[in-house]
Amino acid sequence: MKWMLAALALALGGCVSVSELEQSHETLDVISGKTPREYADCIKQHLADTRGSLVEEKRGDGLRLIVPQKLTAGSGPAALVDIDKRGSGSSIKLHERLNNFPLRLGDVRTAATKCISGS
């Protein structure tokens, strides 16, 4: 039943662009002791089995990861992970599509949280 609701929400949600995700409230805003490269590589490793290829963009001293949707390919990004250099570590902001929908898939947030200090 949960999957039917999630599929319905995705179908009704329409396409979301990167710029629309940038304007959404962050679902995660943290600091990590990892460099932007270390953090980005960790996220990619954790999402390798559940998502398609993440798009990586260089942004100043940091990186942006654009996470594709899991169920509906080609309909815009599911999440943005902005990783900015901060001292010897990173400042991380996660923007997710359907960020206030309780049945959204949790693999991106789980990966982002695990990568803060773990591997």
Score class of each variant (00 low, 15 high):
residue 1 M to N: 03
residue 2 K to D: 00
residue 3 W to K: 12
residue 5 L to E: 11
residue 9 A to C: 02
residue 12 L to P: 01
residue 13 G to V: 13
residue 16 V to A: 05
residue 16 V to L: 10
residue 18 V to Y: 09
residue 21 L to N: 03
residue 22 E to P: 04
residue 24 S to C: 03
residue 24 S to D: 02
residue 25 H to G: 06
residue 26 E to I: 00
residue 26 E to N: 07
residue 27 T to G: 02
residue 30 V to N: 03
residue 32 S to C: 06
residue 32 S to M: 05
residue 33 G to K: 02
residue 38 E to G: 04
residue 41 D to F: 04
residue 42 C to A: 00
residue 42 C to W: 01
residue 45 Q to F: 01
residue 52 G to A: 15
residue 52 G to L: 10
residue 52 G to C: 11
residue 56 E to S: 06
residue 56 E to M: 07
residue 60 G to T: 07
residue 61 D to S: 14
residue 63 L to W: 04
residue 70 K to L: 11
residue 72 T to S: 02
residue 72 T to I: 14
residue 72 T to A: 06
residue 76 G to N: 04
residue 76 G to L: 06
residue 77 P to R: 04
residue 79 A to P: 01
residue 85 K to E: 14
residue 87 G to Q: 09
residue 89 G to S: 06
residue 91 S to G: 03
residue 91 S to C: 01
residue 92 I to T: 07
residue 95 H to E: 00
residue 97 R to Y: 09
residue 98 L to Q: 09
residue 102 P to R: 10
residue 103 L to M: 10
residue 104 R to I: 07
residue 106 G to A: 11
residue 107 D to G: 09
residue 108 V to R: 09
residue 109 R to V: 10
residue 109 R to I: 13
residue 113 T to P: 03
residue 115 C to A: 14
residue 115 C to P: 14
residue 117 S to L: 12
residue 118 G to R: 10
